[in-house]
Design a protein around this nucleic acid. Structure first.
Length: 900
RNA sequence: GGGCUUUUAGCUCAGUUGGCUAGAGCGCAGCAUUCACAUUGCUGAGGUCACAGGUUCGAGCCCUGUAAAGCCCACCA
């Protein structure tokens, strides 16, 4: 195949992915289901020596599109997956799809409304079936998008959050909790959205600061302060602080509740803050969280005056049926008319909103299922304290422990039809008094069941989705009591830092409760992807970046490289198209590197008959430096390519690739993706292309070119899977996929020779810098280079000439002239006329001064007796050496100056 | 009120047990054009590491405090 002059990702990506998928390369190499080859009753998977690497995808919404956060998630998770696969581990990346209970329901309810219907026209089962069809119809987009991003997940194992095995597992856990007494049904105040008519867990509530009014209302002799006058019909008492001298005498007495004919007691409770408002507060146990608790302490009645659809109930006829807003106006008017509205003050207070529709949430008295989380949280804390899970970033562990320590009981009932039905049935037969009021039963497809002569009806509520998704690591790995799998616990859970509490905390609690083990060994939390100005992306701001647009424009790899760049764990960081452009450029660079090497390989095979290894002959005739330990026809284990290193640049690139590999290994272990990518950029671009390949235009070592390119392609593959595979296939040096390759072994090289190449680099750099600094333009073509009795230069004439682009290199024959190059400390001169050298004098003087400043600093360090006495020996020695070096350099520079 | 995080080049960020003469990408400036790649090459400018103290032979890094920005939790009648 021929390489085009630039890499066009669109031409290859989808074909490459399809080829991977049909070849089945994303499946774990060791089966996920138990096998018993010896028929000895043991699971043979555990006997195999393979290492297991498992990771599961936080399930994207089944009927949605991927957003930028998903893009980051895939870039992170798939890099890990591909890296561990290349390392030879049995790697399992389980994809998922979320039924997204509430989210999807909101979308569906909108379409219902558009068609002029409401949820109340249908039974729960009908609604469930309708949403199911709705989701199936819209489903699939996100799975295609995951493929486009290169996610190398095992598609056969895709887990949908409403799959049968998920529901089974959730029911099993629920039953266990029910039997263990962790589940209770309680009438409590819950956060309730009157628009969506469902309750939420505390964590789903969005608090916003808002302007409001604090009204003072006279209840006989006592003036109470309230922001919600309409709830006064539900008042059960007035509370004052027991220490508050103003109201001491009133405690125990009753006052008249305005607009009604009721008398309510004045009670003493710490809840009343003497500093706030009038210091007296009306207590409405059924419609305020604090008041609910006060009510419990004082055994006050809970009077519900607001219905679930947000209208007034159980109130005087005049107010009955009004919305809370209308009622507030009416009440205020009536109180004013009676002259008992005695004050009003503008305040800012925080108000609970529905995180989806923004409606103000109503605290509502409801019977719901709750999980008593105390023991679960305690177990989780114990495991965390024992460091069984490593966090990235580390600080989040403490944050999580603090959260778990203050966790309140968890409301798991939701009044929406789209979700997993709660498997509880309520007794409706009055006479069967011995039977329990509520029973657990898995037959949630039935509305009504019979047991022990009693009739039970199904609870119509569904589970909070976080309750089922807290089982995610368990259900995705198919863990069960009978067949524990080596893929559980997961190696890592990668997800957004914003759902640390909602999801990660619950997975840990549930994992420990169900399996006795933490569900994952490490947690990597990514922050939000912000726009290029560091602003949160939002539709209303119009700054949303669609990852698929970028993939289409620049390619999947470019997107992945771009989004990983400059990103670190747990931080909300800006993202701009620029970084993707830079990723695209790297892909193109790599493509052209491969193109060049392929062309060299092709030439070699054409030339092989006429003039075998001509370049090597040339090299040898110039006399290579004497070295030891140089690689001789090394057999590289991964690629089976034979190579030898025949000059400095070749040893050097082997060393640099080994260093790069080592660095990437370390970065992946520490989840430092950005650094890994950075290292690869530098190695591929600044070292491999700019130095090694340039030198190979002179010394052509085909076997080494092939081996080193293969190594670089493999190391980059986890981050840029498509371009590396496309090149791999295009080169066709092997029959395999790069996906299936093994992480390369160390390259053999001579370290002494490798280090000598640094001298060449210094020489070349100085020639370039000096030429640029000389007056005039296009100096590279103007001035020849001269050398005198310098074996390094002599041995590498062609290379230096090619890299510096000077027109000529000549021997001086013991008569120095021109401009001596001082930095590199070799007998090298630029053949520059005197008047030009004179113009260079200023920059030379400046150079001497700056080196002088460095020397002063070093000397000052050595003058400090404490430094010499206390600093480690090697550092003192290093300083001494540096002083010598700098001094010598200054001498050379001064000599250069006097020569002018 | 409790907790967490951030502050380093114009922008976005690295800087892993203190050894730094503080780095990268983008951007900027200059130079180059039969070259695998202009999605390029070469060169360069650009920093009081938020501030103030302290510890240390030595601080971007450790300690104390201050300021600014952001996030989370709780409370807010």
């Amino acid at each position: 195949m021929k390489f085009a002059s630039s890499y066009e990702p669109n031409l290859y990506e989808s074909d490459i992915y399809a080829a991977w998928e049909s070849a089945g390369v994303f499946k774990p190499s060791i089966p996920t289901v138990p096998i018993d080859n010896n028929s000895d009753g043991t699971d043979d998977r555990f006997e195999k020596n393979g290492q297991y690497y498992s990771i599961v995808m936080p399930p994207p919404n089944a009927n949605g599109n991927l957003h930028i956060g998903h893009g980051l998630t895939v870039a992170l998770e798939d890099s890990l997956t591909r890296y561990h696969r290349l390392r030879g581990e049995s790697t399992w990346y389980v994809p998922g799809a979320d039924h997204a209970g509430f989210e999807t329901w909101v979308v569906y309810e909108k379409t219902l409304e558009k068609d002029g219907h409401t949820r109340f026209e249908y039974s729960r089962d009908e609604l469930y079936a309708r949403v199911w069809d709705f989701v199936q119809m819209q489903r699939g987009n996100m799975e295609l998008q995951l493929r486009a991003l290169g996610a190398s997940c095992s598609w056969d194992d895709l887990t949908f959050t409403l799959d049968e095995n998920v529901i089974d597992r959730v029911y099993t856990t629920f039953e266990k909790m029910w039997n263990d007494g962790f589940i209770y049904r309680g009438e409590k105040l819950v956060n309730y959205c009157p628009k969506h008519q469902t309750a939420f867990a505390d964590i789903e509530v969005e608090h916003k600061d808002e302007k409001g009014t604090l009204w003072d209302i006279a209840y006989d002799d006592i003036v109470v302060s309230t922001t919600r006058p309409e709830t006064l019909f539900g008042d059960a008492a007035v509370a004052v602080n027991p220490e508050d001298a103003r109201y001491k005498d009133l405690i125990g007495k009753t006052v008249h509740l305005p607009l009604t004919d009721r008398e309510i007691p004045v009670i003493a409770d710490e809840h009343a803050d003497p500093e706030y408002g009038t210091g007296a507060v009306k207590i409405t146990p059924a419609h305020d969280f604090d008041d609910f608790e006060v009510g419990e302490r004082h055994n006050l009645p809970r009077l519900q005056v607001i219905s679930e659809d947000g209208h007034m109930i159980n109130v005087p006829e005049k107010y009955e049926g009004l919305t809370t807003e209308e009622c507030r106006k009416q009440v205020l008017k009536d109180l004013k008319d009676q002259g008992i509205l005695v004050g009003e003050k503008k305040i800012v207070h925080s108000v609970a909103h529905c995180y989806k529709c923004g409606t103000v949430l109503e605290p509502m008295l409801k019977e719901q299922w709750f999980i008593d989380v105390e023991k679960l949280a305690k177990m989780a804390i114990e495991h965390l304290e024992r460091d069984e899970i490593k966090f990235h970033p580390e600080s989040k562990k403490r944050v999580l422990i603090n959260y778990l320590g203050n966790l309140k009981d968890w409301n798991i009932s939701r009044q929406i039809p789209w979700g997993i039905a709660i498997p509880m049935f309520k007794k409706i037969t009055k006479e069967a008094t011995d039977e329990p009021d509520w029973i657990f039963d898995r037959r949630t497809n039935l509305k009504q069941i019979e047991r022990s002569g009693a009739t039970y009806v199904r609870d119509e509520d569904t589970f909070d989705t976080w309750f089922s998704s807290s089982h995610w690591p368990i259900v995705c790995t198919d863990w069960s009591e009978e067949n524990p799998t080596p893929y559980y616990p997961l190696n890592v859970m990668e997800t957004g830092a914003d759902i640390l509490f909602a999801w990660v905390a619950r997975m840990i609690m549930m994992g420990i409760y169900v399996t006795g083990e933490v569900p994952f060994k490490e947690v990597y939390l990514h922050g939000l992807v912000l726009d290029e100005h560091g602003q949160k992306m939002s539709k209303s701001k119009g700054n949303v970046i669609n990852p698929m647009d970028l993939v289409a424009k620049y390619g999947s790899d470019a997107f992945r490289l771009g989004i990983l760049r400059g990103r670190s764990a747990g931080m909300n960081q800006a993202f701009s198209e620029n970084s993707v452009v830079s990723g695209r450029n790297l892909c193109n660079k790599l493509w052209n590197i491969s193109r060049l090497i392929q062309s060299m390989v092709d030439e070699e095979s054409e030339d092989v008959h006429s003039r075998p290894s001509a370049t090597n002959e040339e090299q040898k005739s110039e006399g290579s430096p004497v070295t030891t330990g140089r690689a001789e026809r090394v057999e590289d284990e991964s690629s089976l390519t034979l190579y030898s290193t025949d000059n400095m640049g070749e040893d050097w690139i082997c060393r640099e690739i080994n260093e790069c590999k080592k660095q990437v290994e370390k970065d992946m272990k520490d989840y430092r993706f950005s650094e890994a990518v950075e290292t690869l950029y530098q190695t591929i671009w600044d070292k491999y292309a700019d130095w090694f390949l340039e030198s190979q235009k002179i010394y052509r070592n085909i076997p080494l070119l092939k081996t080193t390119l293969e190594h670089l392609l493999i190391i980059l593959h986890p981050f840029a899977p498509f371009v590396t595979e496309t090149i791999w296939q295009n080169l066709s040096w092997t029959d395999k996929f790069i996906v299936d390759e093994r992480w390369p072994e160390k390259l053999k090289f001579d370290p002494i020779t490798a280090e000598q190449f640094e001298n060449i680099r210094t020489i070349v750099s100085e020639v370039r810098t000096t030429l640029q600094a000389l007056p005039g333009t296009n100096n590279a073509n103007k001035y020849a280079l001269m050398y005198d009795k310098d074996s390094l230069v002599e041995d590498n004439l062609l290379l230096i000439k090619a890299l510096t682009k000077v027109p000529d290199i000549n021997a001086l024959g013991g008569k120095p002239r021109g401009l001596r190059l001082a930095l590199a400390n070799h007998e090298l001169y630029l053949d520059v006329p005197e008047q030009v050298v004179a113009a260079y004098k200023d920059s030379l003087t400046e150079k001497i001064l700056s080196v002088g400043r460095e020397l002063d600093a070093l000397n000052a360090r050595m003058m400090n007796p404490n430094y010499v006495a206390k600093a480690p020996e090697y550092l003192v020695k290093e300083t001494k050496d540096q002083i010598k070096e700098k001094q010598a350099l200054i001498d050379r520079l001064k000599l250069e100056l006097t020569l002018i």
